[in-house]
Simulated scan of single mutants.
Amino acid sequence: MATRARPAQRRRQVLSREQIIDTAIGLLDAGGENGLTVRALTDRLATGSGAVYYHVGSRDELLDTATETVIAAALATAPDHAPATPEDEIRDVALALFDAITEHPWLATRLALQITRNPWGPVTVGIFERIGRQVGALGVPRPSWFVAASTLVHYILGAVSQNARIGGETPAIETDAEREEFLGATSKAWQALDPGDYPFMHAISGQMREHDDREQYLAGIALVLDGITGLR
């Protein structure tokens, strides 16, 4: 009996919090939130549920920690240096979040929950701090800081969420071919609308088919920044 206990004991000793979080992120990337179960996690790590609870707490706590880990890594990749303009810094942060949610589709829902339910947590505070510093550097008056930063953050999160599978309910567009097929079908449906009843939708149908998500996202950032700089 003693010889059987030693290997299990060694596994518990070498298991780290970081290993659990990294494995959880992998399960989330592969199967969304439904793919992250304690059983799947313990099977992947060859450990017991007690070790998971000891290191990271409940499943909800693990989801929050996974979100914090991915967002912290994304913000760390966005340059934070003095020579760049405030507009450049905001675009860097926005693109880092865009890329993070594109890579981790489950993140969109968790990020929205963090912003609304835990505004004092590290995710919300980290994003607002990075964006807010640049809002101040743009010369926006202090009484308008909250409105300006909130507008930017809400646009960023709303736009990136459109490019992700939210809550596992909306099928993701996985490949360029699937995206082209989807946009083509949408454009065709809009073109078929009566131009007398829907002149705007009819006019933009071709733009819908040809647009690039990343370029559209950056164009939206530029529009919001134009409005914010007008506050000066």
Rank of each mutant, 00 (worst) to 15 (best):
A2W: 08
A2P: 04
A5I: 09
R6V: 15
R6S: 09
R6F: 07
R6D: 05
R12C: 06
R12A: 14
D22R: 08
T23M: 13
A24P: 04
A24N: 08
G32W: 05
E33P: 04
E33C: 06
R39Y: 11
A40N: 15
A40M: 09
D43L: 12
R44G: 12
L45P: 09
S58H: 06
R59H: 14
L62Q: 11
A66M: 02
T69A: 12
I71R: 05
P79A: 06
H81N: 08
E87I: 13
D92W: 07
D92R: 09
L95E: 06
A96N: 02
L97I: 12
D99E: 07
I101G: 00
T102V: 03
L113S: 12
L113C: 03
Q114F: 03
I115H: 13
I115A: 14
P119E: 12
P119W: 09
F128C: 07
E129S: 14
I131T: 09
R133Y: 10
R133V: 08
Q134N: 14
V135G: 07
V135P: 08
G136Y: 08
A137W: 02
L138K: 09
V140Y: 01
S144Y: 15
W145P: 04
W145D: 11
A148V: 01
A148I: 01
A148F: 04
A149I: 05
S150W: 07
S150A: 10
S150M: 07
T151F: 02
Y155D: 10
V160G: 00
S161D: 08
N163S: 15
A164N: 10
R165M: 05
E169M: 13
E169P: 00
T170Y: 09
P171K: 11
P171H: 13
P171S: 14
A172R: 05
I173R: 13
E174G: 09
E174F: 00
R179E: 13
E181V: 09
S187R: 03
W190L: 15
Q191L: 04
P199S: 15
P199M: 10
P199T: 11
S205V: 01
M208H: 04
R209A: 15
D213I: 01
A219S: 07
I221E: 01
A222K: 01
L223C: 04
L223V: 13
R232L: 06
